[in-house]
Design a protein around this nucleic acid. Structure first.
Lengths: 346, 346
DNA sequence: TTGAAAGCGCTAACAT
DNA sequence: ATGTTAGCGCTTTCAA
């Protein structure tokens, strides 16, 4: 493959000339539009191949008023979450020859809605994927829908406002709680997730439902507020472990907080899992890298990213707008990962 | 702000009208071209701000024959590394109204060079940023240079093949090793990094230099090969801790492997730091979330991403090609983070 | 220092 | 089933 530094790029005109058709016909073939005779199509495809033609994305975007890019919106997710999600989204984009534009935003920005809509308009982003907690901003969802911007959400309230890829958060928390109860625990404390996240409520609900259905009471002071970060987990853990009658098990709403619980236990010489069982949520690498290994809930973030991107791209492929929005909800399976932090035999 | 469904995006004409100048003048301001009176410039900037104008990338790309995008190439970095780096790069891109295109590739792909060059050409990517170990692929660097594709590397052999943002890896390893020696250790083992990474060699060199200069011999079997992942750290740690006369300190070439050392120590009831001191490299969140806290070397990845993007964008701004490539090397400061895993008084 | 005019390569709307 | 004609919003010439 020899190329000079300033080789003129092959354009649609070159292809049209070589195939002996108009540029519009070439355009039709490239965009897989109907109404092209098979023979014509073949001629054009041959010319494209011979010239090694690739449409200029800028020209395409300018003329068609779209960018052939979808946007990923996020607010300060954990590195692990972002990397996995992005990897899945990129994969799906790659399959459909779409590009990915990233946009880190702030959930609490009063101009969030305007910022996002403006970004989409100015960049001609064709569709967007939202991640928690942005997925739980009703004004944002409404604006996107009203502005006819195709979108999909990762995890969400599942109200069907937009297509979604999610797990059954409540059921996952329910099952994890049952695991603790079945392991013999009755003094189980819970550290809640960040209140901005709708999923936090679901996890809490799952916990409470399991306790109630098993007839295990939640002791006073055993429900602590956390914010998904290590520091808040540490504070919550401190309070719980300083209680006169401390819990024998703590279920934290995510792994970072669970790791903080273990950290605090270690520093007080409280044996995990002997004196204290700990469970988390997310199955981050961290859960395998601390000692003892952390029992947690695995969600297939990567796959969910892939699915969500697929939902957006399907909408795009279906109708050029998001008019007849298909409000799919893809529920994927979670998995309980039982590790050392809740081991019973020792 | 009321907007209909098909609100026309703000264009350069709107800005020109509002500022009372021609579109060319707006263009000059946007592109920071010279020969614009300060007063005019201010008027235009005010209009841009008021209308919240962002240039249409497709139109820009079409007219200027470039994409206004830079590419970020990576091969399976740790989530934390990727998230931080990307954040810095995005920030720099945002400042200059550039877009970012991501490209996960494989260092061992025999078609790596062709894949990358083709991708850059097809997408009209204006320049690229390489991350380790891609930064250490001579053929890749040569191809980019030969094809006149502006690029910058994050960390590298520092040979000046391309502009780079890096820390003094060897010196960092040297100082960490000295910290261990000064803390009273003499039986110090080292777990090497992935051999694909040039930095691995530098870190090893720093370790050996410190040992030698302090007159501390490296015991047989005290140099272990690792691959930067937790599993390889575990294996290396197992071998080291099973030695008849085991080390009193282990310096692992990154945090994941150091965490594995601590994990293995815990599971053998070896007290850290009492019986075994452990040091890592990277200052990942993990280093603060395991117990005891991990002594490590902090590199400002985010800042390095920002710098590297700046180097590429500067090249782009300077000459339209990378003709008179400025082979800058920006060295940023590292920092020793001393935490519990190497504490002396207990 | 500024502006007017001419495209960049493609798709959309309307021919035929 | 295929072609013609206008732009899309910007940068580039070149002129003033």
């Amino acid at each position: 493959m020899v190329k000079g530094n300033h080789m003129r790029a092959v354009t649609i005109d070159d292809v049209a000339k070589k195939a002996g058709v108009s540029i519009k016909t070439v355009s039709r073939v490239v965009n897989r539009e109907p109404n092209v005779r098979a023979a014509t199509k073949e001629k054009v495809e041959a010319a494209i191949k011979e010239l090694n033609y690739r449409p200029n994305q800028s020209a395409r975007g300018l003329a068609a008023r779209r960018s052939y890019m979808i946007g990923l919106l996020y607010d300060n997710p954990s590195p692990n979450y972002l990397a996995n999600l992005q990897s899945g989204v990129l994969e799906a984009c790659h399959e459909k020859d779409y590009g990915l534009a990233l946009n880190p935003v702030s959930f609490h920005d009063p101009d969030l809605v305007e910022t996002v809509v403006h970004w989409v308009r100015q960049s001609s982003i064709d569709g967007v994927i939202l991640t928690p907690p942005l997925t739980d901003s009703i004004p944002l969802l409404e604006a996107l829908s009203q502005q006819n911007i195709p979108s999909a959400v990762i995890s969400s309230r599942g109200t069907g406002d937009a297509p979604a890829a999610l797990i059954d958060e409540e059921e996952a928390a329910y099952e994890m709680t049952r695991h603790l109860i079945i392991s013999g625990h009755r003094d189980i404390a819970f550290i809640k997730g960040h209140p901005d996240h709708y999923a936090s409520g679901l996890r809490e609900k799952g916990f409470l439902r399991a306790m109630e259905s098993e007839g295990v009471p939640v002791a006073p002071g055993f429900m602590e507020q956390g914010y998904f970060d290590f520091a808040s987990g540490q504070e919550a853990a401190s309070r719980l472990l300083d209680l006169p009658k401390r819990p024998t098990a703590i279920f934290a709403s995510n792994d970072d907080m669970a790791a903080a619980v273990i950290f605090e236990a270690h520093s007080r010489k409280i044996d995990v899992p002997g004196e204290l069982a700990v469970a988390g949520f997310d199955d981050t690498p961290l859960s395998r890298q601390i000692w003892p290994g952390l029992t947690t809930v695995r969600q297939p973030i990567r796959a969910m990213g892939h699915q969500a991107a697929g939902l957006v791209l399907d909408t795009l492929a279906a109708g050029k707008g998001a008019d007849e929005e298909r409000k799919d909800v893809i529920q994927v399976d979670f998995e309980l990962m039982i590790r050392g932090s809740t081991a019973t035999s020792r």
